[in-house]
């Protein structure tokens, strides 16, 4: 087992190829819940957990069901199905088992189903032929990167609340400008690790 490779995967997926700032995926949730720090943190935790589990489940299904049955051409539909089924069941189970946690994080679960990163990660895992642990590491790194992006964005947007932004740029518009400028800063990481 190669821990160096796993570590590289986590760093690469979270910082160097940060999904939000270098691939511009998952922007709807990114702009949607980054208004307040509290929601951003809740979303980050839920997102990372779902990411890891769905990456693992997708890998198992892909490796042991889809490849033997020669169904790889259906991977988009099947991965969407897996994520949706997992999120829905997690939602129901959490409601029964831990209502307190459900009221804290439950709202974010439904949103995650429609996120593009959650679909992109299994697809990239399948495309790059990562093994089980690598898939989990990649999923974890992606979740971490998204969490980082959300928390940074929330802290900046909270600071800008009192700023005298010109009227046409208030709200979403200035957020897009901020995201662009952060993406500019993240280009500094390019070429750091080549996978």
């Amino acid at each position: 087992m190669d821990f160096g490779k796993l570590f590289e995967l986590v760093v690469a997926a979270s910082l160097i190829n940060n999904f939000v700032f270098t691939r511009f995926l998952g922007l709807c949730i990114f702009f949607g819940v980054s208004k307040k720090m509290e929601t951003a943190v809740g979303m980050s935790i839920t997102f990372t957990a779902v990411m890891v589990v769905s990456a693992a489940m997708s890998w198992i299904v892909y490796e042991y069901i889809m490849i033997p049955l020669d169904l790889t051409f259906l991977k988009i539909i099947i991965f969407i199905g897996i994520v949706a089924a997992f999120v829905q069941s997690a939602d129901t189970i959490m409601k029964k088992v831990s209502p307190a946690l459900y009221y804290k994080l439950g709202v974010y679960l439904a949103l995650i189903t429609t996120n593009c990163i959650i679909l992109a990660v299994p697809l990239i895992n399948a495309g790059e032929k990562y093994n089980f642990l690598e898939s989990i590491a990649f999923g974890f790194g992606s979740g971490l990167g998204f969490a980082l992006a959300l928390v940074i964005m929330a802290s900046i947007r909270e600071r800008l609340e009192t700023a005298d932004v010109p009227a046409p740029f208030r709200g979403l518009a200035i957020s897009f400008v901020i995201a662009g400028l952060i993406a500019l800063a993240f280009t500094g990481f390019s070429g750091l690790i080549t996978l």
């Binding site: 600071r159 800008l160 932004v165 010109p166 200035i174 400028l181 800063a185």
Partner: peptide, 15 residues
Amino acid sequence: VITKLLFGGLGYNIF
């Protein structure tokens, strides 16, 4: 313009 004034001028820019 983009980095300073759009954010509300001196004192508000993030970068």
